[in-house]
Structures are given as C-alpha cells and as structure tokens.
Amino acid sequence: MVHARTPEAESLLTPAEVATMFRVDPKTVTRWAKAGKLTSIRTLGGHRRYRETEVRALLGGVPLQRSGQ
C-alpha cells in the first residue's frame, strides 16, 4: 500500500498542467525541476508530478519556504 508523504492529501499536477499555468512547454517545467526551482514527485511509473501549492506559490512570485509549512 502506498501512503502520501504528508498527512493531508495534497493535490498534484502533471507537467502539462503546470506548463499551461505558466504558458511554457512541458519540457521547460522538467528543466525547472532539474534546476531545483520546483520539487518533483515521481509516480510508480516514473512520471513527474508537482505539488499544486508549490506551483501556485511560484506562479504568484511568493518565495518558497521548505520548512514549517
């Protein structure tokens, strides 16, 4: 059985969904993840997913806080 990493169920977005929000190519989103601008979560199938809260914070220009959330 797979458990979420956080106590509450967190909404995850696909690279295509993130790309649409930023109006960029999905490959750009993957590059951002590799550069450390976004935290990616890997599915069992190896696909990347992104936390909606983190994506919206980046979209709004809010500096990300890794601890104490």
Rank of each mutant, 00 (worst) to 15 (best):
Gly60Val: 00
Ala57Thr: 05
Arg23Pro: 05
Ile41Ala: 03
Glu17Asp: 14
Ala4Lys: 04
Ala57Pro: 01
Ala57Lys: 09
Phe22Cys: 03
Ala35Leu: 14
Arg42Ile: 08
Gly36Pro: 09
Ser40Val: 00
Ala33Phe: 03
Tyr50Pro: 08
Ile41Asp: 06
Glu8Thr: 11
Leu64Ser: 01
Thr53Lys: 13
Lys34Asn: 15
Val2His: 07
Gly46Glu: 04
Val18His: 06
Arg51His: 04
Ala4Pro: 00
Arg5Val: 15
Gln65Glu: 13
Val29Asn: 02
Gly61Tyr: 03
Thr30Ile: 10
Phe22Trp: 09
Arg56His: 04
Arg31Ile: 11
Leu38Lys: 01
Pro7Cys: 13
Leu59Cys: 02
Val55His: 01
Ala9Met: 08
Ala9Gln: 05
Leu38Tyr: 01
Gln65Pro: 02
Gly61His: 03
Trp32Gly: 10
Gly68Asp: 13
Val55Glu: 09
Leu38Ala: 11
Val24Thr: 01
Val2Glu: 02
Lys34Gln: 15
Thr39Tyr: 12
Ser67Cys: 12
Leu59His: 12
Ala19Leu: 07
Leu64Arg: 11
Ser40Gly: 10
His47Tyr: 14
Glu52Gln: 15
Val62Ala: 07
Gly45His: 14
Leu59Met: 05
Arg23Cys: 09
Val62Lys: 09
Gly68Leu: 12
Gly36Cys: 13
Ser40Glu: 09
Ser40Cys: 15
Leu59Thr: 03
Thr14Asn: 03
Ile41Val: 14
Leu12Cys: 02
Leu12Trp: 04
Thr28Val: 12
Leu13Gln: 09
Leu38Cys: 03
Gln65Gly: 12
Ser11Ala: 07
Tyr50Arg: 04
Pro15His: 07
Glu10Trp: 06
Pro63Ala: 10
Val18Thr: 10
Gly45Cys: 06
Leu64Asp: 13
Ala9Cys: 15
Val62Phe: 05
Ala16Tyr: 02
Arg48Tyr: 09
Ala19Gly: 06
Arg5Leu: 13
Leu12Val: 09
Lys27Asn: 10
Arg56Leu: 11
His47Val: 06
Lys27Ile: 11
Pro7Lys: 06
Leu44Trp: 04
Thr14Gly: 08
Pro15Met: 07
Leu59Gln: 13
Glu10Val: 07
Met1Arg: 00
Ala57Ile: 05
Gly61Phe: 02
Gln65Ile: 11
Ser40Tyr: 07
Met1Lys: 00
Ser11Tyr: 04
Leu13Thr: 11
Arg66Asp: 11
Lys34Met: 14
Gly61Thr: 14
Thr28Glu: 04
Ser67Gln: 12
Ser67His: 01
Arg42Thr: 08
Arg51Lys: 13
Ala16Cys: 03
Leu38Glu: 03
Arg49Ala: 00
Lys27Val: 05
Ala35Thr: 04
Glu54Gly: 11
Gln69Arg: 00
Leu13Asp: 10
Arg56Gly: 02
Pro26Ala: 03
Thr43Arg: 13
Val62Pro: 00
Phe22Glu: 06
Tyr50Lys: 07
Ser11Gly: 10
Pro7Gln: 08
Arg42Tyr: 00
Thr6Phe: 04
Arg42Val: 08
Leu38Ile: 04
Glu8Leu: 04
Pro63Ile: 06
Thr6Cys: 09
Thr20Glu: 14
Arg42Asp: 01
Lys27Glu: 14
Leu44Met: 13
Leu13Cys: 05
Glu17Thr: 08
Ala16Thr: 09
Pro15Glu: 01
Arg48Thr: 06
Val24Ser: 08
Gly60Asp: 02
His47Asn: 14
Leu13Trp: 06
